[in-house]
């Protein structure tokens, strides 16, 4: 029994995932300590020069910087297991509480972005694939290319500049949460989601197109067509059904990426998301904040990958059999 559990694929995957997260933890811990300056200099700035040695020592003890690195690492890791992600002295809040505020922002943004990208990318990809190398294919591909080539910060900055005079600036009202002011919240999420979706729709569109073309050349579709199944139905049911696997994989990948990759857009549109939490943490040298937050993002990424993998098995009969 135990042997079967150990040998089971899921167990192995979970073990790999845990190992990966441990690696991320070590990496982020070391990198942070290598950045010049610490929380004392980050908080006091040039005034830190005027601190006496006793004052400096006092502050280092206060921020927990006086302990040996190994002790710092293991006490952080140990605390993680007991659910204590650390404390942000800047925000006077636990990292868990901070994350409880910032993570939903980013997750919501990521979900909206993915929905928008699917809405744009999949139909566009099917349109392109419906008549390869035609004008419409060319047009579809051009959009895809534009999406791949226009960076989010450029699109976001130009959108904001363009809208500046129009009076439409929901993000200037201060962030509204989805639960308290859903309508305002959606307005605030709209532009950043559009900006991100523009970039993410492109790979989804390309994946859809390739997948559809590939599936269409498969024997059973040819047979179905020969049997007289209407092309439109064929398109949606069979072709898209079978192209779902690569599209799902792609989407999962992009979602995982968005958790940590929306940082530029969060910055431009003043969204208090998790990316900004890390950025501010790095600036303020709040080690616990950065370490735990990066680990949370990495966990999200790993989980999304596991989920994609599971979904993939669910959708694709071939994988299920093997």
């Amino acid at each position: 029994m135990i042997r079967r559990i150990i040998r089971h694929r899921l167990t192995r995957r979970l073990a790999t995932a845990l190992g990966t997260l441990l690696g991320v933890a070590i990496l982020v811990f070391i990198m942070l300590r290598a950045i010049p300056g610490d929380q004392v200099t980050a908080q006091f700035g040039l005034e830190a020069a005027g601190l006496t040695e006793a004052q400096r020592a006092q502050l280092e003890a206060y921020y927990g910087l006086d302990r040996p690195l190994v002790v710092q690492f293991f006490s952080w890791l140990g605390n993680l297991f007991s659910g204590n992600l650390g404390f942000s002295s800047r925000a006077q809040m636990s990292v868990a509480a901070l994350t409880a505020q910032s993570l939903p922002v980013t997750v919501e943004l990521a979900v909206l972005t993915i929905v928008l990208s699917l809405l744009i990318g999949v139909p566009l990809g099917m349109l392109s694939a419906s008549k390869p190398n035609s004008l419409r294919d060319g047009l579809g591909q051009t959009v895809g290319l534009a999406g791949l080539s226009i960076p989010a910060f450029l699109l976001g900055s130009s959108l904001l500049a363009w809208l500046a005079g129009s009076g439409f600036n929901p993000n200037g009202l201060g962030y509204a949460s989805l639960t308290q002011q859903p309508w305002l919240n959606l307005q605030q999420m709209l532009l950043p989601a559009v900006v991100l979706a523009f970039g993410i729709a492109a790979p989804i569109m390309r994946t859809t197109r390739t997948a559809v073309l590939e599936v269409r050349s498969l024997d059973f579709i040819r047979t179905a067509r020969a049997k007289g199944v209407p092309v439109r139905r064929l398109q949606w049911r069979h072709v898209l059904g079978n192209a779902l696997v690569p599209i799902t994989t792609m989407t999962g990948l992009q979602f995982g990426y968005l958790l940590g990759g929306a940082i530029v857009v969060e910055q431009i549109f003043s969204l208090p998301g998790i990316g900004r939490q890390v950025l501010i943490g790095i600036q303020q040298k709040e080690y616990a904040v950065v370490q735990s937050t990066v680990l949370i993002i990495a966990t999200g990424f790993v989980l999304v990958n596991l989920a994609t993998d599971a979904l993939y098995r669910l959708i694709d009969p071939r994988v299920r059999v093997s």
């Binding site: 904001l160 500049a161 809208l163 431009i268 900004r276």
Partner: peptide, 10 residues
Amino acid sequence: IPDETSIVSA
């Protein structure tokens, strides 16, 4: 609001 341009437009 981290972005000064956004402050102006707000």
